[in-house]
């Protein structure tokens, strides 16, 4: 089982597996700002990649999580973990161009190409997104990168009821204003709607006003450092208690209510959670004191056709990276058989 920055240990536990420490496999091997591509070895910390890109005014638009905490290139791809900023241009699957990995037979395999468009051969880079180290050990990844917006700011409406917040999110999300982030955060006073806008500086105020007009509610605005810090806290899970399990759940504005119902049924309506990236994913902080109820959550999610990835978990949690509903099992079994016939990486 490969091990990078150790920021998501619950995804890297396989009974009886040897740990392969990749933390020394570091370095940006190629960065061509004019090509919008960057290539780095799997153990490279994303913080290092991000600062190198920032020096050229570029960034990773999938908005990786736990960057300050030390997550690495390989671990992020294997977890398939995108942040709130994936709303604007897409997630890892949209920005991973090429991979090199070692398969279960010890063969070095390359897939994709280090150019922004390519349709040659099977799309192995996409297969590696979310593969949790079970199909191969990533050694190098090439990403597409984009120019960073000149400046960003956030408007926030606080303390709404869930349905009201969801409706407002739909209204502003389908309006003409292009958003970097659109999150619904559960707080003490109810639901906060947070909208981040980025782009050319001198058009920013007019666009913020336009978004606020669409909401037609009292808004507060976060700019410069306050804006950056706000979203950094979101990405670093600073809003979740350190002993909580953090789960990621793919969903849509139409199924967010289903998750709310699942949580209510389990008497968990008070847990910290956020519907992120235009309500395309939820992050739920399952309380450390309720670790024993995770199997019930697993069953309830499966019944509701919802899936969760255990991004972070206390050691007491069951060793199960994916909870709830699953698709594609038969295809996955065949792919596992092809890339790891002896099952050395453990099966998903």
């Amino acid at each position: 089982m490969p091990h990078g920055g150790g920021t998501k240990p619950s995804l890297a536990v396989v009974d009886g597996a040897e740990v392969l420490d990749l933390s020394a496999l570091t370095g940006i091997t190629e960065y061509l700002p004019s090509e919008y591509t960057v290539t780095a070895l799997a153990g490279t910390r994303l913080a290092d990649v991000a600062s190198r890109l920032a020096a050229e005014g570029q960034y990773l638009p999938f908005d990786p999580l736990l960057v300050d905490a030390g997550s690495t290139v390989g671990g992020t791809v294997a977890a398939g973990a995108n942040g709130p900023g994936r709303l604007r241009y897409g997630g890892l699957r949209d920005f991973l161009l090429a991979v090199t990995f070692v398969d279960g037979r010890g063969e070095i395999v390359r897939g994709g190409a280090k150019v922004v468009k390519n349709a040659a051969g099977f799309d192995l880079p996409k297969l590696m997104v979310g593969s949790l180290g079970r199909l191969g050990i990533l050694t190098e990844c090439t990403f597409k990168v984009f120019p960073h917006p000149e400046s960003c700011a956030t408007v926030r409406v606080a303390g709404m009821a869930f349905d009201e917040a969801l409706e407002a999110a739909g209204r502003v999300g389908s309006g003409a204003v292009e958003l970097e982030c659109l999150d619904l955060m559960y707080g003490l006073a109810g639901w906060d709607l947070e909208i981040r806008i980025g782009g050319r500086s001198f058009a920013l105020d007019a666009r913020l006003k336009r978004a606020a007009d669409l909401l037609d509610m009292d808004v507060t605005t976060l700019s410069s450092d306050a804006d950056a810090n706000h979203w950094r806290t979101r990405r670093e899970f600073g809003w979740a208690s350190p002993d909580a399990s953090v789960l990621k759940l793919p969903l849509t504005p139409a199924t967010a209510g289903t998750l709310e119902q699942v949580l209510a049924d389990l008497a968990a309506s008070q847990v910290a959670r956020v519907y992120s990236a235009g309500v395309q994913q939820a992050f739920v902080a399952w309380p450390g004191a309720r670790v024993a109820d995770l199997p019930s959550l697993d069953r309830a999610l499966a019944q509701s056709k919802l899936t969760a990835l255990m991004l972070r978990a206390p050691t007491a949690a069951p060793n199960q990276p994916i909870l709830g509903y699953r698709t594609g099992g038969e295809l996955l079994r065949r792919v596992e058989q092809a890339l790891d016939p002896a099952g050395r990486f453990g099966r998903l």
């Binding site: 199909l135 990236a277 899936t307 994916i322 698709t327």
Partner: peptide, 17 residues
């Protein structure tokens, strides 16, 4: 069945494959 109707997923991206 592969994937779903969310932009996000969990597990290897079999739709992408």
């Amino acid at each position: 069945e592969l994937g779903g109707d969310s932009l996000e997923g969990v597990g290897p991206d079999l739709v992408g494959l």
